[in-house]
């Protein structure tokens, strides 16, 4: 398959069963769906930007505390999760591609979409399992936000106001983790629809939009990882 623009059939006589009555063409329908998705992603980015700004403000106020507290996050766990998420972005892109080139009512092509969705789901699961171990370690050591912070009672002496850092850490990664869970639910839904043979080159906007959502989850982690785990 080359880098060509394929012009999927829009011939006036033949009606695509996936075309809703209020759209003229599939191109218009898919374009509208995608624009809507991008507008939604814009609101997501704006929401996360508030948390990123909170991080930068706290870092600006208490640079030494942030640098001291971030040493207690596991770089290895964060790194593994980054790779897992990047790989899942690849498998999701491949799922979308499989739908783009899938022949209608073709079991084999539908199976390919499903295979990549399963791989993506698997990666999302691994991400959450790693996150679970990270969180339980933080809970165990009392490295918790605000008034729940008890790390000093567990023998961890972090200077400054680390309960604020862990507030930001849990809020950012928690909201991100919530998005991972939602993304998994969406993928299950897309999987079920793929099983019904709904997706092919004639109709793949839903797979594509699910993909866009999943890539956004990856995108946010790309910034979360260096800021929370790595940066000095």
């Amino acid at each position: 398959m080359s880098n060509a623009h394929s012009h999927a059939a829009h011939t006036t006589g033949e009606h695509n069963p996936h075309l809703a009555h209020h759209f003229d063409t599939m191109g218009q329908q898919a374009g509208a769906a995608k624009l809507g998705m991008w507008l939604f992603l814009a609101t997501e980015l704006l929401m996360f930007s508030g948390l990123f700004l909170a991080y930068f403000v706290i870092r600006g106020f208490y640079p030494d505390m942030v640098l001291g507290a971030h040493e207690y996050l596991s770089k290895t766990a964060g790194g593994i999760n980054t790779c897992v998420l990047l790989f899942s972005s690849y498998t999701m892109a491949m799922a979308v591609r499989s739908a783009q080139v899938g022949r209608p009512n073709n079991q084999e092509d539908a199976a390919r979409i499903k295979k990549y969705l399963i791989l993506t789901l698997l990666c999302a699961g691994i991400f959450l399992v790693v996150k679970y171990f990270e969180y339980s370690a933080k809970f165990e050591h009392g490295m918790l936000p605000g008034k729940f912070y008890t790390a000093h009672l567990h023998g961890y002496d972090i200077e400054g106001l680390p309960h604020i850092f862990f507030g930001v850490y849990f809020f950012m990664t928690g909201l991100h983790g919530f998005h991972v869970v939602i993304g998994m639910a969406i993928m299950v839904w897309i999987y079920l629809r793929a099983s019904r043979g709904e997706f092919s080159e004639q109709n793949y906007a839903a797979v594509e939009n699910a993909g866009l959502y999943w890539h956004l989850v990856d995108l946010i982690w790309i910034f979360l990882f260096p800021l929370l785990y790595l940066v000095k």
Binding site: N3, H7, T25, G27, S89, Y90, R97, E201
Partner: peptide, 20 residues
């Protein structure tokens, strides 16, 4: 009003993943 969908070759995705 045709669908102008662009299908990237698999190699593109692999190269991008490698770069990431």
């Amino acid at each position: 009003h045709e669908i102008h969908h662009h299908v990237s070759p698999v190699r593109h995705y692999q190269v991008v993943l490698g770069a990431l």
